[in-house]
Amino acid sequence: MNFLDMPKRTIGNRTFGLTSIADFGVPVGQLRCILDDYHSYIDVAKLGVGSAYVTPNFDEKIKLYKQYGIKVYCGGTLFEKCYYQGKLDEYRKFLQKHGVEWIEVSNGTLDIPLETRFDLVNELKADFSVLGEVGSKDQTQELSARSWVLEMNSLLEAGCKYVITEGRDSGTAGIYNPNGEVKKSIIKELTKQVDINRVIFEAPTSKQQMYFINAFGPNVNLGNVKMQDALLLEAERVGLRSETFFMEPDSNPARL
């Protein structure tokens, strides 16, 4: 019985309000138990870093995610490894063979020019739903707010379904300072010039997740969420944690 007034969440096959978890090697049996209880809170699953290439029972894992209606893709590091070795055609065949329908185009480790990524998205979108990631894993590499906006809008224009803000699984790069604090000037510009419903903010820590929930409301897209935090994040989204306690039922702040 539901009796509390809480912020309204998108449900079912969401197009925004997404929770994208990071799978860094959870065994299939454990994954089955997690999804049995919490699949309704999970929309997307990333097989983190390049782990998909060495994952035991890979096909079984992909099938399990799909069974629960969860979109699955391989981390951008695997894409970049294949790009670096000139093996993108083999990578495409690998994904198609295993029934992976989403692909990430990133430049977190390599410096792949935006024009090249634009062309790759145009090419890949015929066979995959494409995610474009912006930002570097290298903390010494700084993109201006203008460059963040330009890259995100260019990748969306090229055909990406969503764009992802790099944050690493540690939450210390890309849109974050090395201490994990959000680079608010960048977020402010994205708010003004990019369709936020098509941006997935990597936010691996609760503090970072609650920053975006309080800034954009319960239906902000969040990524790199630890699998074991899926339930906790849903509670945060609907005002069941102290830091989001006072969110109104029709809350959609976007007050940056």
Rank of each mutant, 00 (worst) to 15 (best):
A45N: 12
T77I: 11
R146S: 12
P7F: 10
L155Q: 03
V134G: 01
G223T: 05
T191Q: 12
W102F: 14
M210C: 09
L47A: 09
D250A: 13
V49P: 00
A230C: 15
A52Y: 03
E60I: 07
L131R: 01
T109F: 10
T140M: 11
E248L: 13
G86D: 06
G12M: 03
W102T: 05
A126W: 07
K66S: 06
T140G: 05
V194W: 02
Y41S: 13
G69M: 03
V182F: 04
G180T: 09
G180P: 07
Q85C: 03
R168I: 01
L190H: 02
V100Q: 00
A230R: 07
P204Y: 01
V238H: 06
K87L: 15
V121A: 08
I70F: 05
H39D: 01
V72A: 08
N2C: 07
E202Y: 13
Q96C: 04
G132V: 01
E133M: 10
M152E: 08
E243V: 01
S147C: 07
I164H: 01
V130Q: 12
Y211G: 08
T172D: 14
V26P: 00
G12L: 06
G50S: 15
M227R: 05
P56S: 05
S185W: 04
S251R: 02
G99Q: 00
W102K: 04
K66H: 13
R32G: 04
D195R: 04
T19M: 03
D138C: 10
E248V: 03
L18P: 05
L114A: 10
F245N: 11
E60F: 09
S170W: 02
E60M: 09
A235F: 14
L124M: 13
D195T: 02
V220N: 07
T165C: 09
A126R: 12
Y91E: 07
T116E: 15
V44H: 08
G239Y: 06
V49T: 11
S242A: 14
Y91K: 09
S154C: 11
G159P: 05
E157W: 06
C74S: 11
V238F: 11
K61V: 12
V26R: 01
I200D: 03
T244L: 08
Y41G: 04
V44I: 15
K183T: 05
I175P: 00
I186T: 06
K8V: 14
T172N: 14
D23P: 08
K93V: 02
G174W: 03
T19G: 00
L143I: 02
V54S: 11
Y65W: 14
V105N: 02
F212W: 08
V199W: 10
L150H: 14
N57S: 11
Q139S: 13
C33S: 10
T140E: 11
L64W: 05
A230T: 12
A254S: 15
F245W: 11
D5V: 00
Y73F: 14
I42H: 00
L131Y: 12
V26N: 00
S40L: 11
D36K: 15
V194F: 09
H98A: 06
V182P: 00
T191K: 12
D138Y: 09
N107C: 13
K81F: 10
F24W: 07
E157H: 13
G132L: 07
G135K: 01
W148P: 00
A52K: 00
G180K: 07
L4N: 14
Q30G: 09
